[in-house]
Design a protein around this nucleic acid. Sequence first.
RNA 1: GGCCAGUUGGUGAAGUGGUUCAACACACCGCCCUUUCACGGCGGCAUUCACGGGUUCAAAUCCCGUACUGGUCACCA
Length: 550
Amino acid sequence: MQKELAELLFPNIMKTPEDYEAMYPERNLEKGAIVTRFAPSPTGFVHMGSLYQAFIASKMARQTNGVFYLRIEDTDQKREVENGITGIINDLKSFDFKIDEGPLQGGVYGPYIQSERVEIYQTYVKDLIKRGLAYPCFCTEKELAELRNRQEREKVRIGYYGMYAMNRNLTFDEIKAKLDAGLPYVIRLKSPGDFHKTINFHDCIKGNISFPENDMDIILLKQDGVPTYHFAHAIDDHLMRTTHVIRGDEWVSSVPVHLQLFEVLGFTPPKYAHIAPLTKREGTSVRKLSKRKDPDASIRFYHEKGIPHDAVKLFLATLANANFEMWYNQNKDKTLDDFAFQFQKMPVGGTYFDLEKLNSVSRIYFSMLKANNLYDGTLTYYQEYDQDFAQIIEKNKEKTIALLNIEREVKRPRKDLASYSDVKHEFENFYDEIFLNKDPESAYSGLENDKNYDVSLVEQYLNIYQDTDSKEEWMERLKGLAQDNGYAREVKQYKENPEEYKGHVGDVCETIRACVTGKKMSPDLYEILKILGKESLAKRIDHFKKYLED
RNA sequence: GGCCAGUUGGUGAAGUGGUUCAACACACCGCCCUUUCACGGCGGCAUUCACGGGUUCAAAUCCCGUACUGGUCACCA
């Protein structure tokens, strides 16, 4: 009878589970190799939360010489977005995640798009029906809603299970009659579970967890013949020979369903690793990072700000394994690839997505770049976002690299850059074509309207300027200049007898700095002056005077 | 409401029974270095690990309860 029912429902399915088992054999990999996947729905761009999951999955696969593949879960046509798949692939590519198998790169376990695998799912469903483990259900939305209401009233567990599974024991003739009447139906699992029994399993991240067994007759195939997530997961991850299912922890409570599915299908279950969500604070509550509410959830955000993807990855790495940061700080010459991530060290609760932390990670990243690499990245960034500035730094390539190199090739480099967008802000005043073309007020806006400077100090400095000076000679000159004008040669001198001086050599520097950079703070003045040269200095003095006169 | 999980300083977090167990990072403050800022150095910032009880010679670490936070209970993934 069950066999007849199976044939009645799926007359066109000719293959058997055995055929697919043979088609997709076990992978031949070294022991401990992790086969895992990134399995998004094509609902738009990849956001931080899913990127984080992809990062962890690809990392775990890479470091065990395993396989990282991409599977598109497009079983819900309603949610689909145009170009969703290429968008996802491009996003992953831009972060340099190597995809071993996927819709574009192919692979012997394909197709890697679920909508192209419908025949496979139906084959297994047909087999389950044949074995009396699944059945067609004709319940309408309305009936289901009524059931829910009734269960709410009776204060019993809500769901389609046990005695509430109305269509569970329909006879063959009843089913045939409904079919003949053209009624739509879904295929449900005839759950063998008992809610009063407990199922234990081990999650690689969360540890041992126990749940009541699943007794819900969950839907396997929707009305359109396409599987639900649960069923597709069981079939695909078995057939694609996934060893570790790495996914968001909103799935933890579904594990009993999934384990049951593996059981009835006769599959060995994979290991599970449920990743805690990236979270944000909102008042006193905590919520998942949201595509809609958080601009920083989008990858675009980092691109526009000019935070390199490698810096973002470093940040994700510290979120994934907090001990990464310490290791990295002690092994600056190593890369992400040299660190072995551990599931056990991944956070169990929510993971706070802290932009300030990203900032600090990015600063360290920038501080370690070589000037010419920094230059290349900067140029690429401004070619996209500010062509005028891009032209200027391109025209002044050597000068720009020299500027970017100030206090860089030292043991402890500066950390004043957190993004490419900071470069313009920090350095634009060093280009005469920008600085001198600004009106004096805005060129010197960094002085915050402080006009208490003695410009004659800079004029005197111009007269004694020697571009062959070593740093020590330069300093000597400044000290002389200080002394001649009633300033202390040394800061200490001044501190001991402040009333005897107008100020100290630092104040002299400060005045030159203000004149030259338009700011109260800057990288090493000696280096800057050397790069700018005497001519530029002279022009800046005139500019400075206009500002002071105003 | 049922089921499952989490709760360590200003923040993120290490740490799962015992003489450095309260690391580290970010933030903040103080001092030092110093031509400014930064960098760096030193110091400060949880007598205590949500609360209450229990087990133990010994608990942030194990057990029970309470509170709070989050997840989940779809023909969405």
